[in-house]
């Protein structure tokens, strides 16, 4: 019975989600324009969050914005090559905690909600970013 129920759940889930499945993640994110909107909203979210903003007190926001857009474009298979500092170098010395990292993910989700990125596309971007966490926390 369980197998049947589970299969049913999966079928329902996949039936209502087949459009767009051939588009690259970059396209699903709305290409350059969409990624810029996400990063803009994300920076706003960080600016309004005392806990995370503390990490960015001395950051040049315009560089961070440009490099993060490039990073998201690259990681979502867009036509860009990330040329900023690598993840380990840039985050070394910040001693980002696991809780703060995960909280930043919540801010990114809030930013994506704000600009109307669908739940399923959000998860696909998060899936690409999640493996990077180990390079960034407690260093």
């Amino acid at each position: 019975m369980n197998k049947l129920l589970f299969t049913t759940v999966l079928l329902v889930v996949s039936a209502c989600s087949h459009h767009n499945s051939n588009a690259s993640l970059y396209q699903q994110l709305g290409e350059q324009e969409g990624i810029e909107a996400i990063v803009e909203a994300f920076i706003n979210q960080i600016g309004n969050d005392e806990r995370i903003f503390a990490y960015f007190a001395d950051t040049h926001v315009s560089r961070f914005r440009d490099k993060l857009i490039l990073h998201f474009c690259d990681i979502s298979d867009g036509p860009c090559v990330y040329d900023g500092d690598n993840m380990v170098d840039i985050h070394t010395g910040m001693n980002i905690t696991e809780g703060d990292f995960n909280h930043t993910v919540d801010l990114l989700i809030a930013a994506m909600n704000e600009v109307g990125v669908s739940h399923r596309v959000q998860n696909r971007l998060l899936a690409r970013l999640a493996p990077l966490r180990d390079e960034m926390i407690y260093i």
Binding site: H18, S21, H119, A127, A130
Partner: peptide, 10 residues
């Protein structure tokens, strides 16, 4: 937990 495993669902 597999992020975006099935058609984008976790």
């Amino acid at each position: 937990l597999h992020l975006g495993a099935f058609a984008g669902y976790n």
